[in-house]
């Protein structure tokens, strides 16, 4: 929850609510990009971000993203984040 997870912005999905699709190690997930949208929404496509509970909180570079992912995997946190995402998808469908 506090360590976050890196992802790459694939496309902007909703300009009005600052939502974008991010690719997190192959898992695509909707994220809110309000906190990193200073340079304009379209500029974010292709950029790497650090995602905390579904919100992109900082822009990072690809190298940082890779290193962070390695550390999170070693800590077991990456697996926990993915599990939380899948669990949440089930919660949305009422299959909890």
């Amino acid at each position: 929850m506090c360590l976050g997870i890196p992802g790459q912005i694939v496309k902007i999905t909703d300009k009005a609510t600052n939502l974008a699709l991010a690719d997190v190690s192959g898992v695509q997930r909707q994220v809110n990009v309000t906190c990193v949208a200073g340079g304009g929404l379209e500029d974010l496509v292709g950029k790497w971000v650090l995602i905390h509970v579904g919100f992109a909180m900082a822009l990072i570079d690809e190298d940082e993203a890779r290193k962070t992912m390695e550390t999170l995997t070693a800590l077991g946190e990456a697996q926990e984040e993915f599990e939380a995402m899948f669990q949440s998808d089930r919660a949305l469908e009422g299959r909890t």
Binding site: Q30, V31, N32, V53, G54, F55, E81, A84, M85, Q87, S88, A91, L92, T96
Partner: peptide, 23 residues
């Protein structure tokens, strides 16, 4: 509490809680 029947759901993000409210 969940096992006792309360509707408690684990979400990844407050965005998902918002979506649950919409649905």
């Amino acid at each position: 509490a969940k096992a006792d029947g309360a509707d408690i759901r684990m979400v990844y993000s407050p965005l998902d809680a918002l979506e649950l409210a919409r649905r």
